[in-house]
Structure formats: structure tokens, C-alpha cells
């Protein structure tokens, strides 16, 4: 990396930190990380988008069971700076609710949020289209939660212990 490129990199970090009002960290090449408060998510995403982070790569959720919180990560790519900005924010696990960013990325953000809603049960305020995406006729809890034991769930819901053919599955469990 030349000196000029290095200088440019520190510039972006400083500029972003002051614009987003949070400390942006450059962890590895072209990877910027920032942690913000969940109430500021729309504001921060909008500012980042205006600064050139126009491409929403994806939204991912992590279930931190011991901590009792969900972490949402918004990955934004900038065609201008060739850098990825990952915005991280944590919300309460018992009442998971956060503002939708569909005002910025329209139906694409909505679709990503639909996925998070279906698999983690997170509610996105302002997103009117939180209909099921992948799962059909699913009545159980959101399947990607860490405390959801799918092995037990399938045995209970889909297998019959009385049935001699399916009895073996229950024996394996014991």
C-alpha cells in the first residue's frame, strides 16, 4: 500500500467517524466496523448512503443468547471508496424491535428484513410486508434462535413414537 492510499484510508475513517458521530474502526483492508445505538439506525444508514455507501450488501442477525440480545449487522459497500462498512447494533432479545430502513433501500431492505423477521422473530417498525418468505405453514418458534432445538421439535411434531418404523429415532435420542 502506498503512502497516498494509506492517507486516504485514515481520511475516510475520520470523515465517517465525524459524519456518523461514532467511532469507526478499520480492522483489515477495506473493512470498516462501527457500533451504534439501535435508535440511530435509520439516521446512520442514511448518512452512510449519502456519503457513498450506496450498496446494501445484506442484513444479518446474530442471536447472543447469554447476553440476552440480538445483534443486527448492516453491511454496506461503497463503489466510491471501495470499502465495506458494517454497522452493528444490539437490541433486546425479549422485545426485539427496530426501525425499518425501507425508506433508503426500498423493497430490497424490506426483503432482507422479512428474512430476519421470519428466522429470528425480529420486528421491523415501518415495514408493512413482514410476510413469511421461505417457510410454509410454519407454526413453531423462529427456527434460527439459539435456544430452538430443532431435533427435539421435529421428533415431537413430525414423528410418531407408536409407529414401529419411526421408533428408532426416539431411541437414538435417549
Amino acid at each position: 500500500m502506498t503512502a497516498i492510499e494509506q492517507e486516504k484510508k485514515t481520511d475516510i475513517v475520520e470523515k465517517l467517524s465525524s459524519e456518523l458521530d461514532a467511532s469507526v474502526v478499520l480492522k483489515t483492508d477495506r473493512r470498516l466496523w462501527v457500533t451504534i445505538d439501535s435508535s440511530k439506525v435509520v439516521d446512520t444508514c442514511l448518512k452512510a448512503q449519502q456519503m457513498g455507501f450506496e450498496h446494501l450488501s445484506t442484513i444479518s442477525a446474530v442471536d447472543w443468547l447469554e447476553e440476552g440480545r440480538f445483534e443486527l449487522v448492516y453491511h454496506l459497500w461503497s463503489y466510491k471508496y471501495n470499502s465495506l462498512l458494517s454497522i452493528k447494533t444490539k437490541i433486546d432479545r425479549n422485545k426485539p424491535s427496530i426501525s425499518s430502513i425501507n425508506s433508503i433501500w426500498d423493497t430490497y431492505a424490506e426483503t432482507c428484513e422479512r428474512e430476519c423477521h421470519e428466522l429470528f422473530g425480529i420486528d421491523f417498525k415501518g415495514n408493512s410486508n413482514l410476510t413469511p418468505l421461505f417457510l410454509e405453514d410454519w407454526k413453531g418458534p423462529p427456527p434460527f434462535l439459539k435456544d430452538f432445538n430443532w431435533r427435539e421439535y421435529t421428533l415431537k411434531e413430525l414423528y410418531d413414537e407408536e409407529n414401529p418404523r419411526e421408533k428408532a429415532y426416539f431411541e437414538v435420542k435417549k
Partner: peptide, 28 residues
């Protein structure tokens, strides 16, 4: 195509998120 992977010092990854290119092309 992208992988978001979180490791917490266990034998297996704590969380994996896969970003497929067709997700945006085929829905919105």
C-alpha cells in the same frame, strides 16, 4: 456472494450468514 461468519472459540461457527446474489435479483 458473501459469507458473514462469527466465531466465539467453539469447534463450530457461532453464526453463518450467506448472501446469495440471486436474493436481490429474484425478489425485489
Amino acid at each position: 456472494g458473501a459469507f458473514y461468519m462469527v466465531a466465539t472459540g467453539e469447534k463450530t461457527p457461532y453464526r453463518v450468514k450467506i448472501r446469495g446474489p440471486s436474493f436481490s435479483h429474484m425478489i425485489p
